[in-house]
Amino acid sequence: MIEASPSTVAGIISHCLGGFPDEACGLIAGDARTGRVARWYPTRNVAASAKLYEVDPGDHLRADRDAQAAGFEIIGVFHSHTHTPAYPSPTDVAQAPDPSWHYVLVSLRDVGPTLRSYRIVSGKILEEPVVVTVG
């Protein structure tokens, strides 16, 4: 499960819309035990592609340091799919670096964006709830 504020969810979707027609990406930080997202980081997509993303390594380092300094961890990544559903692609599964991470997908295929979250463990995709909480 991930738990996020409305402003976090809106910010992630807004960043994804801003990256269109390319895929957009970023990182989420929070408490690894609870899945509560405390902050999110937009990152550049160095692949600059409508079909691929690659988190800018410098942006990743800065996000990691900021999260650590605030007492959090990077607990996952989000990225957009511009023409396909909010479901991990075979490339996403093959390159998923960390079984403890949350993989958040935002689909921009339809008029209304959709956001879903998954764990990817040993090549298996497991959807998890996204709980939006206030306060």
């Binding site: 079909k51 691929l52 690659e54 380092l61």
Partner: peptide, 10 residues
């Protein structure tokens, strides 16, 4: 020295 995963997908 910091090691981070290269985060990428499609």
């Amino acid at each position: 020295v910091s090691i981070l995963p290269a985060v990428a997908g499609g």
